[in-house]
């Protein structure tokens, strides 16, 4: 099967990388035998590769794996990992017992609350012979009642005083000055 120069050049990178199937590569090879221009393209591709020379390999430090594993399990976030991410992930990984502890605390708090309610209700006095003590549980309505009662007492006391004065007036005559003074008092 013959293929065109355009097709050859479009497939050239894959050809050089060994990514073509034999079905694709065979016609390429046949074409390259006859086509000088395409052979030049292949040559250029191989020249570029000769400029790609890797650095020497680096010796792995002794005990590297053990050190890294130890640091990872100790929650070390590393030098490049953003602190927030590392802490969050480390917390979720390093503390699997945390949810259990939180649930335990919640249950304990609920039990304590119920217990305190039970103790409070048990300590309150109960029965038919309960009596309120003087000065105890004094609310606004009771205060108003007491104030009303005091006002009534004062008015009755004043009226009794007036009655006594009238009785005295009836029994002995008075001067004008004494009458004026009584009027001021009232």
């Amino acid at each position: 099967m013959n293929i065109s120069c355009d097709n050859v050049r479009s497939l050239l990178p894959s050809y050089l990388d060994g990514e073509l199937s034999e079905e694709q590569a065979a016609p390429m090879r046949a074409h390259l035998i006859d086509c000088h221009a395409c052979r030049e393209s292949v040559h250029e591709g191989t020249v570029v590769r000769r400029w790609l020379v890797p650095r020497d390999e680096i010796a792995i430090p002794q005990g590297f794996a053990a050190r890294v594993a130890r640091r990872a399990f100790a929650g070390d976030p590393g030098l490049l990992v953003p602190a927030g991410d590392a802490e969050a992930q480390s917390a979720s990984r390093g503390a699997p017992i945390l949810p259990f502890v939180l649930k335990l605390c919640a249950v304990a708090a609920a039990v304590l609350f119920c217990l305190s309610l039970a103790i409070q209700s048990a300590s309150l006095p109960s029965g038919d012979d309960l009596e309120a003590k003087d000065g105890y549980f004094f609310d606004d309505i009771e205060a108003q009642d007491l104030e009303s009662q005091s006002a009534i007492d004062l008015r009755s006391k004043a009226s009794r005083k007036v009655e006594r004065r009238q009785a005295l007036d009836a029994s002995e005559p008075r001067t004008d000055e004494e009458s004026a003074a009584d009027g001021d008092d009232e």
Binding site: F64, V68, A69, R71, A72, F73, D76, P77, G78, L79, L80, V81, D85, A86, Q89, S90, R93
Partner: peptide, 12 residues
């Protein structure tokens, strides 16, 4: 440093 961080990231 980069390799170490790679493995620590992988662990996280």
């Amino acid at each position: 440093d980069i390799v170490q961080d790679t493995f620590i990231k992988a662990y996280l």
